[in-house]
Design a protein around this nucleic acid. Sequence first.
DNA 1: GCAAATTAATGATTTATTCAAG
DNA 2: CTTGAATAAATCATTAATTTGC
Lengths: 212, 212
Amino acid sequence: MSPAVASAALPTSRWCPTPEQLMILEEMYRGGIKTPTASQIHHITSYLSLYGRIEGKNVFYWFQNHKARDRQRLRRKLLLHQHTLHLQKQLMYHQKLYDHNQPNHQSHLLHYLDSPLHKLNQGRVEDASTQLLNGTWKADLHESGYNVANLTNRFRDCDSTMKRIMVDIDASSPCRNRTLKTLELFPITTTVSLKDQYTTATQVPNPSLLLE
Amino acid sequence: MSPAVASAALPTSRWCPTPEQLMILEEMYRGGIKTPTASQIHHITSYLSLYGRIEGKNVFYWFQNHKARDRQRLRRKLLLHQHTLHLQKQLMYHQKLYDHNQPNHQSHLLHYLDSPLHKLNQGRVEDASTQLLNGTWKADLHESGYNVANLTNRFRDCDSTMKRIMVDIDASSPCRNRTLKTLELFPITTTVSLKDQYTTATQVPNPSLLLE
DNA sequence: GCAAATTAATGATTTATTCAAG
DNA sequence: CTTGAATAAATCATTAATTTGC
């Protein structure tokens, strides 16, 4: 059925540069030729045909593509680098807060935890979305007041518990429930300063935690 | 006008614990008393009144608040730590991609750059919002094909330029425009391998870049 | 240095949740 | 399933601590 296709010089549909051609082209590119003129392309083409079949359009396309892809690579590398720097900076900042217990680390952390950024980091896309939509989140840290909105006081008789406990306490009724160890409660041998108390009380959690 | 307000024991509206009282309370808390019973509160109160005016409810509230805020502090420390780890992990990952030119770093970075997360990091709240709303962004990296959607081929006559240039080249019209230095174009002394080309061509940009 | 202004800490209250008994 | 006691979480309000502009 099939007719006689030339079995010798298989008709490849597109130019396939030989290693020598590639080397030369790259060298010229590095040498400063980024967008050769028509005449330059002609010269290059004739020179490169010493190393294999080649046409002017091949040279033209090669420089076009090479330049574009060079720019692309650079752009991406730059962005990646920027991102790395961003991460480094963030990390340093948080490490500082973490290590030194900075005074305002709480508010910063709270703001972060409330941000759509954090929610996205956690994969809570829906939350982040609605938050952004409602304009509920302010990027400015200083106006990050809670949006309590309308807390209807539905429960006006809710302080009963507290009052009962208070009555219990203030009406002087000692020794009621459970095992009370009144005497052991006051082993007051405090030689620890308040500052020491605070600093030693806050331990670093063990680092076997993972994200998400 | 103003009547005689007791000028002696200025009527402070709320209890202000003396340093001794605080020390004792903290010591007891550290000793294990987290939610004292009514009777315990009574004992503590009577003991602490040796060091200054105090009521049962003060003790009650103090333990409530102290316990709650202790938990809170722990929680926040944990979260901060988690966040630090997250950042570290991200950083290490990107550093790896950056340093080693990993094969799929491009798609990863592209995906990140297209994500609302990145837009939020840049402060482009609106963009992120609409993106999330439209469901335009897929969190799963594996289905992160560009949502090219409907790229209407509005530009059907766009290859005209290209065609003109091709004609210029292949119709063999040498020495047309500009200063052509045909001979100096081929100083082919290439001893550089392709690999070296690539690796040396991509330099790290200078680190004076800032986020946002 | 100091006094007003801002911010953080914490005592006091209110609201929400848990859990056991009925 | 409902109820109520107990407690945890959230919030309000005042005091202590810091910053800031003379």
